[in-house]
C-alpha cells in the first residue's frame, strides 16, 4: 500500500528522486550459484515490480545505477548501459558469486547495451529476456526462452494514462508564464470576464493536447501526432464555444479561438511522441518541420484576430 501511494506520488513528480534503490547485487529467495542473474534499474517502481513478480523464486537481481530512471529511458540516455553493467558486474564480484557466465536483461534495456562489449569486458554473455517484468516468471519456467508475445510491445490506455500526470507537471511552469501573460493582456484589453474565458480556453486546449490526445490516441484519425492533436483541439474548441457562449463573441474572436486552441493542443500531443514506444525521432522531426510553421502561423493569426476583434468592438 505504501509502495502504491509512493508510486502515485512519483507519477506526479513528487519526491521522485527519493525513488532510488541502492545499486548492487540482491538475492531474491535463496539463490544458488547456478541461479540466473536478472538485471534491472534502480527506479523504485521498476525494482518493486521486478521483486513482486519474482516473489517465491530464487534468483539474483543486479540493480544498475540509473539515478532513479526506468530501464527504457535510462537505456536511451545510456545510464542503463554497457559501462554501468560492466562496472556493476565487477564491483559486485558476480564472477565469484555465480558459477555460470550469463546475465539476463530486459529487452527495453538493449538500446543502452552492446552485448558483445559486455562479453568482451566481463566474460558474461547477455541474454535479452522480455519486455515486461510480468513475463519473467513464464520466461524462467520456459527454460529461459523468449516467446514472440514477450517481445511484443503494447501501449494500452492505462499505459498511456499513467504518463499524463508527469507530462502535466513538466509544463506547469510554462502554463504559469504563458497563461498569466495571456490573462493580463486580455484583462487590460478586454476586461476580466474575457480574460478568464481566454485563460480557461488556453488551459483547456493544453489539457486536451496533453491528456485527451494521448489517452484517445488510437481513436483519433491520422498517423501524425500533430494532426491528432489538432483534431482533438478542434473538438475542444467546438465544446468550449458552446459552453462559454461563443455565439456572443465577435467573429474575429470566434475565428481566433478555432485557430489558437487546436494549435496549442497540436503542439502538446506532438510532444507526447517522447513518451511513446513506437514513434521514431526522424518522424517527429519531419512532423515538426511541417507543423511548427503552421502552428506558429495559426497562433500569430489568432492573436491578430483577437486584437482586431477586441479593438473594433
Amino acid at each position: 500500500m505504501s509502495d502504491h501511494l509512493g508510486a502515485c506520488k512519483a507519477r506526479w513528480g513528487i519526491n521522485r528522486m527519493d525513488f532510488l534503490v541502492p545499486p548492487g547485487l540482491y538475492a531474491i529467495g535463496t539463490p544458488t550459484p547456478e541461479a540466473p542473474v536478472l538485471v534491472t534499474a534502480n527506479y523504485k517502481m521498476t525494482y518493486d515490480l521486478v521483486r513482486r513478480v519474482l516473489a517465491g523464486r530464487n534468483v539474483w537481481l543486479l540493480v544498475l545505477e540509473t539515478f532513479g530512471i526506468n530501464v527504457w529511458c535510462a537505456a536511451g540516455k545510456g545510464t542503463f548501459g554497457t559501462g554501468e553493467l560492466v562496472r556493476r558486474v565487477a564491483e559486485s564480484g558476480l564472477a565469484k558469486v555465480v558459477t555460470h557466465r550469463r546475465v539476463t536483461l530486459p529487452i527495453l534495456g538493449a538500446p543502452g547495451i552492446a552485448a558483445h562489449e559486455v562479453l568482451k569486458q566481463t566474460g558474461f554473455s547477455v541474454r535479452y529476456a522480455t519486455i515486461r517484468a510480468e513475463d519473467l516468471p513464464e520466461y524462467l519456467d520456459n527454460g529461459e526462452r523468449t516467446t514472440p508475445a514477450m517481445r511484443e510491445l503494447s501501449f494500452t490506455m492505462y499505459e498511456r494514462l499513467v504518463l499524463v500526470p508527469v507530462e502535466i507537471v513538466l509544463v506547469l511552469k510554462t502554463l504559469l508564464v504563458l497563461g498569466g501573460g495571456l490573462y493580463l493582456a486580455a484583462l487590460i484589453l478586454a476586461g476580466s470576464s474575457a480574460a478568464l474565458t481566454a485563460l480557461l480556453g488556453y488551459l483547456g486546449a493544453v489539457f486536451t493536447g496533453i491528456a485527451l490526445g494521448p489517452v484517445l490516441l488510437p481513436f483519433i484519425p491520422g498517423r501524425s501526432f500533430a494532426v491528432k492533436g489538432a483534431l482533438a483541439g478542434l473538438a475542444f474548441s467546438a465544446v468550449f464555444y458552446a459552453v462559454a457562449g461563443g455565439a456572443l463573441w465577435s467573429w474575429p474572436v470566434q475565428l481566433a479561438s478555432f485557430l489558437a486552441f487546436p494549435a496549442v493542443s497540436s503542439f502538446y500531443t506532438l510532444n507526447f511522441t517522447g513518451c511513446t514506444t513506437y514513434t521514431s525521432r526522424s518522424g517527429v522531426k519531419k512532423e515538426m518541420r511541417l507543423s511548427l510553421p503552421v502552428l506558429g502561423g495559426a497562433l500569430v493569426a489568432s492573436l491578430c484576430l483577437a486584437l482586431v476583434g477586441t479593438l473594433v468592438k
Binding site: S154, F155, R223, T277, Y278, T279, S280, K286
Partner: peptide, 13 residues
C-alpha cells in the same frame, strides 16, 4: 505494434 503505426518512409535504419 498492434493498433499503432507511425509515419511511413522516415526511419533512418
Amino acid at each position: 505494434m498492434k493498433g499503432f503505426r507511425y509515419l511511413s518512409n522516415v526511419a533512418t535504419l
